[in-house]
């Protein structure tokens, strides 16, 4: 079983890295790029014995307490 956790900056939080990437792709000639926001992606291998519900609970708690800083970031968890 695997948990996928996506951590993204909250809307409105400045993302200088995303901005720098946007500027670079603009210079490279990519058209129509309105904005780039950089985030983080985690893959967490979970013991099958946890079961679906506990796996989700564990991954959600880990995302909330460790992987994301709720002051500046949002997160989304997928279990597969």
């Amino acid at each position: 079983m695997k948990a996928k956790v996506y951590v993204t900056l909250k809307p409105g939080v400045l993302d200088p890295q995303g901005k720098a990437i946007r500027n670079s792709v603009g210079l490279m000639g990519y058209g129509g790029i309105a904005d780039v926001r950089q985030g983080k992606y985690f893959e967490i291998a979970l013991d099958e014995s946890l079961g679906g519900e506990r796996a989700r609970e564990t991954a959600e708690r880990m995302a909330r307490e460790v992987l994301a800083n709720p002051v500046i970031e949002d997160y989304r968890v997928e279990i597969e």
Binding site: L14, D15, P16, Q17, A20, N69, V71, I72
Partner: peptide
């Protein structure tokens, strides 16, 4: 201290990178 919640807010990447 910010990450610990002992102080509010957060410190992110500098404006000019």
């Amino acid at each position: 201290l910010c990450e610990s919640g002992l102080l509010p807010g957060a410190l992110i990447r500098n404006r000019d990178l």
